[in-house]
Design a protein around this nucleic acid. Structure first.
Length: 208
DNA sequence: CGATTTTGACCAGCGC
DNA sequence: GCGCTGGTCAAAATCG
């Protein structure tokens, strides 16, 4: 597995062959969800849908500028978001939510996330370059919690109710499939997501 | 014509 | 210090 996965905890469910039974899949689906009921599971789209405002999304993702530590969304507080419903999308969804605590586990990649966070925070009013420049002056950055979802789908571009604009694509190490970078285009929504296919199972899309 | 995608280049952080 | 890698930018191309 790529090193990146070390950072994320994939509560990875087995995608059973027929989880895309159309409609009926909710049974298995729901069952699986219950496993995460206390740990914060939700599909990306559902998660987004669960918020009435885009800001909420941002907040939930721990992107609020004021947050000094990265809270895990939903944590054990039990604010799960609509997990009982089937996804608004036809994709067979599912799996996994992952979070990483703020810098406790340190791994080598933290900087990247921080960088990302920085741009998110600054991106609104100032240009990215400024953010970058600023970053230099800053001593330490904090990590942004990330959540990974594994979705079984034929297409990369999942419909989760939000509009995403692709702003980059990169070939990833250890995987024949490229990783795509998307940014939410809805105003006030500064969430970004990375989408890549599992090299082990091309039918699975990993959304981070 | 505006929004989105594509794609190469650039930058910063990390490991060696 | 250098090379590698991930993430982002931005211009051009494409689409609806």
């Amino acid at each position: 597995m790529s090193e990146e996965f070390r950072d994320l905890y994939y509560y990875h469910q087995r995608f059973h062959d027929d989880d895309r039974n159309g409609g009926q899949n909710s049974s298995t689906y729901t069952q699986n969800l219950q496993m995460f009921n206390h740990s914060s599971y939700m599909g990306f789209g559902e998660f987004l849908h669960g918020s009435t405002e885009h800001n909420t999304v941002t907040r939930a993702f721990g992107l609020t500028p004021s947050t000094s530590e990265a809270p895990v969304m939903a944590g054990g507080d039990g604010d799960l978001v609509g997990v009982s419903e089937t996804p608004a999308t036809p994709y067979s969804s599912i799996s996994s939510s992952s979070t990483e605590a703020a810098g406790d586990d340190d791994s080598n990649k933290s900087k990247k996330e921080n960088q990302q966070k920085e741009s998110v925070e600054d991106g609104e009013n100032s240009s990215k370059k400024e953010a970058k420049a600023k970053k230099k002056g800053e001593k330490k950055k904090q990590r942004v919690p990330r959540f990974a979802f594994m979705t079984k789908s034929e297409v990369d571009h999942l419909e989760d109710g939000y509009r995403w604009r692709k702003y980059g694509q990169k070939a990833v190490k250890n995987s024949p499939y490229p990783r795509s970078y998307y940014r939410c285009t809805t105003q006030k929504c500064s969430v970004k997501k990375h989408v890549e296919r599992s090299h082990q199972d091309p039918s699975i899309v990993i959304t981070t």
